[in-house]
Amino acid sequence: MSHSIRIIARLDIKGPNLVKGLQLEGNRVLGTAQQYSEIYYHEGADELIYQDVVASLYGRSSLKEIVQKTSETTAIPLTVAGGIRTIEDVTDLLRAGADKVAINTAAVSNPRILTEAARVFGSQCIVASIETYRQKDGGYEVWTDYGREVSDLETIEWGKRVEELGAGEILLTSINNEGMGNGFDLELVEAVSSSVSIPVISCGGAGKLEHFKEVVTKGKADAVAAASIFHYHYCQPVNQPNMSYSSPDLRMGAHIDSGNIEFLNEGYGGTADLMVDSCSIGSVKEYLNENGVETRII
């Protein structure tokens, strides 16, 4: 291996808030995206993904402001996803400071958007986001609108198609595994990664260190994105009001008045409720390097 595997922090965002749910549902507010993005930058994240969780639902992306701020405080690539429908949307986000945009819903309803955007901005800028749901029979359906709507597309075929259409990369999210911490869907990742010649970012399922290794060695992922496992390293739910934060300045509940902040204020469930063995990005990278997967250590 002559190049490193990217370890990416994925931040699902609603308004200014970092949120996290399970299987793209039940999002709870953890803090502000801005603050977490800075932590991840300084801890060696290779890239950030901002996913606006309600953008497709409301038909607009509200991330411009926060993208702008982030691009001033971090110097790593930023991919923005959620609600991107037009060339103007792409232009706006790139001008705000995004390096890449990821498109799911709009690409499913109008595949030509990928071709058009790649022509205008270059393929390297255009990521096809694929959210997929594994059926009981093992088939994979493509879903849209942040896991709200099912399409009639089949995932492996759609993966090949988005490459032909001009996407330069695929962000592949397993809805079944997302937030669950029980590992990536290796079969899915391997199937998509082997059938395209563009890089595939695997997302959904990281719960412990070994998961990162196996999705690279067995799943052939070119990059790995994770959320809960990193977020909960800095804010842990406890069985009492207020979560336990690794640093007092991360206690942002007072500033946050929108979204589901119960989790933030009540800490219900305690750490037993966590489905991941939370850890820092740095420790994931060290583990991978010790186990034969090259990563960038800062």
Binding site: S123, I198, P199, D222, R296
Partner: peptide, 17 residues
């Protein structure tokens, strides 16, 4: 191109080297 080779790598190269 990575075709016909043992090593698995993608084009474009996207990432840290």
């Amino acid at each position: 191109e990575s075709k016909d080779t043992q090593e698995n790598y993608k084009i474009p190269q996207i990432g840290w080297n």
